[in-house]
Design a protein around this nucleic acid. Structure first.
Lengths: 127, 127
DNA sequence: AGCTAATTGATAATGATTGTCAAAATCAGG
DNA sequence: CCTGATTTTGACAATCATTATCAATTAGCT
């Protein structure tokens, strides 16, 4: 049976306060800074749980770190600022449809797709 | 000045013989198995070079490993079999256009996107 | 051949993530 | 409110991919 612990709640809460994607390490530091004594391993476990329950999105940063973010439950994609991490959830029915069509065109079944756009948000446009 | 070494050629050659995406580690093992004495660090360096020159594609596996694959120079996306690794390069003008449109709609500039579809190819459909 | 800077490769270092396992905390029932 | 079975935690060790180090080698030029 799954139990409710303050640690799990703390992770869920901390994730909710983040603007964009955060690494497990960063979230752990953040929690420690606010006085929590939560352990690093616990943060990893809680994030993995949240992700598998659909309460969080996870993706790999270009550097290979796993990043997490609280999300709505529906399937969606992301528009992520490379500079400040600002994340916008986007719907992409057009792309969903295209992905399914393309997959079956090539004989692939059970398609899952990764569609994320990285760029610079209006506040972070580099010179 | 960039030099041509047999090591770099060996990596380029080995990448070309692979069906789908391979990790640097796997490619190194593969080279060792065929008698090459190339060093692991060199494989990493060669792959990073090939990727930055556009001769190879790189992506992160769900487990966080960096995977590489020889590719054509034009921008394109992938349809990847989760089971056997078979990879099909796909063009997606439709998606390119959508990505650009969506990015600017939200005030993002210099969009780059990650659009890969994972599924099971016709030979690997699970029960 | 000889020079010089780029490249190699063995190994150490790094850094994120996972495994371990005893101690602590949770939930259900009485 | 206790008790007990079971889950969860957390400090730390272990792992694994990747990167840095740096002396020795080598490519490419003259």
């Amino acid at each position: 049976m799954k139990r409710n612990t303050w640690q799990r709640e703390a992770v869920r809460g901390a994730l909710g306060t983040q603007m964009g994607f955060v690494s497990a390490q960063a979230l752990h530091s953040s929690l420690k800074n606010t006085g929590s004594q939560i352990g690093l391993a616990t943060v990893y476990r809680a994030l993995a749980d949240l992700a598998s329950e659909g309460e969080a999105d996870s993706l790999q940063s270009p550097e290979g770190e796993a990043l997490y973010r609280a999300c709505s439950l529906a399937h969606h994609h992301h528009l992520i600022c490379r500079s400040c991490g600002l994340t916008v959830e986007i719907e992409a029915d057009e792309v969903e449809e295209w992905a399914g069509r393309t997959a079956s065109l090539h004989g692939f079944s059970r398609p899952e797709h990764v569609v994320d756009i990285f760029g610079f948000c209006s506040a972070c446009v580099p010179t």
